[in-house]
Design a protein around this nucleic acid. Structure first.
Lengths: 215, 215
DNA sequence: CGTCAAATTGATAAGACTCAATGGCAGTGG
DNA sequence: CCACTGCCATTGAGTCTTATCAATTTGACG
């Protein structure tokens, strides 16, 4: 089965004329971010959209009751900040130290065409996540999540999640405890191994078993 | 623990793969659809995208285990069928008798800007749904769903859902039984009243209480 | 050593799923 | 006209998963 997630790992293809970004993409315009630094907040005016160069970004919303829900994690190559309307509907923060490159929202029509592709890619991603969220099983959600993250490190059997359990929980719609328990189950089944003082480094031991869990 | 995610009494219209017509060159001409008629299927080439003129359309995907998940319901004024790539990633079917208008995807560049807006609108909708799906409570999901449907009939306190419980269940990631129980709770609390032989007509009795449930 | 933060583990209860049965309505055929 | 059947929605009983509340572990740092 083809996974729509596939389009996330590669820098989202902007098939026609990548040069169109040239005007906004001057060298040295890269922005460096510290951990938890805010890029924009809900309600702010939309000034630009961004591509991640390094690190990870979390896009989230706050619900009326104060609950935080993370809509997506963006890593190297991912685009974010392209919104409908001229006001931010969500927050963007650095998960860890990160670098991003801003692009102006105004542009030529060929530019608009590229924006369309980015928007469609984001839409596809959102729909895929919708599918994953529907899955009731916590273990399955976590399995899907790990796969999703693993796809961003092709060829490597070991990678750093970068985000804390709380981030994962808010992303998957679970509690911290349930996330931890799911990780433990995967470890007990020898599907993954966790490393590092905060257990955020994942080593894949049995990709097939993981894929089977994720369905 | 074996999670053989059951093929939930796979609803009705499975084996039916009615002829998908080729909208082809004859764009901008209204198409009339019968109930459950297929507009396009997964894997087909993208020939057009559509705007709903009347009735309702369900957009869904089939998971490897045969489980159906409905990504969205589209009613009058909604756009659908705008995808990334040139192949369909999902299915589109008429929920009931419906009318849609096709548009060629090879539009001029003046069109592109509008396409972007449509894509962004769909993206925003998908993200909103992601938020709603995270909500654990079945009652809350159903409340959000009814609100969502009510918003499409502004000024009216009564409207027809058009889709069956099975559709609602696949949309909300619940079982038919849980959907029915939630409807019953809303009825018992005098928040809605259900009408019609199939109880698919909703009358809003207490909008505030509904909004409170939906958070 | 004490403190802190993050993650893990444990016990309990609430909520949703599963299986099973019921009721209402429409169409069909004797 | 009435029994029969199928479809859809609803309800009931039992089981299982996860949220909740609480306690414990681990490593880092002063």
């Amino acid at each position: 089965m083809l996974h729509v997630h596939d389009l996330r790992q590669e820098p989202i293809q902007v098939p026609t004329r990548p040069r169109a970004f040239e005007p906004a993409a001057r060298a040295d315009q890269t922005i460096r971010l510290k951990q938890d630094q805010t890029i924009y907040s809900e309600g702010q005016k939309v000034l630009a959209f961004y591509q991640v160069e390094a690190g990870a970004i979390r896009i989230y919303r706050l619900m009326p009751d104060g609950h935080r829900h993370i809509l997506s994690f963006c890593v190297k190559g991912d685009w974010f900040g392209l919104e409908q309307g001229d006001r931010r509907a969500d927050f963007a923060e650095a998960v860890c130290e990160a670098r991003i490159r801003p692009f102006a929202t105004t542009g030529s029509s060929t530019f608009t065409n590229n924006l369309l592709n980015i928007a469609l890619a984001n839409l596809a991603k959102a729909q895929s996540r919708q599918m994953a969220m529907i899955e009731q099983s916590a273990l399955k959600r976590v399995a899907v999540f790990i796969q999703e993250m693993a796809e961003r490190h092709p060829g490597e059997s070991e990678f750093d999640l970068m985000m804390c359990r709380s981030d994962v929980a808010d992303y998957l719609g679970l509690t911290i405890e349930t996330v931890a328990r799911s990780f433990t189950k995967l470890r007990e089944r020898r599907i993954i191994r966790l490393k590092g003082k905060l257990q955020r480094c994942v080593q894949l031991l049995d990709r097939d078993a993981l894929a089977a869990l994720a369905l």
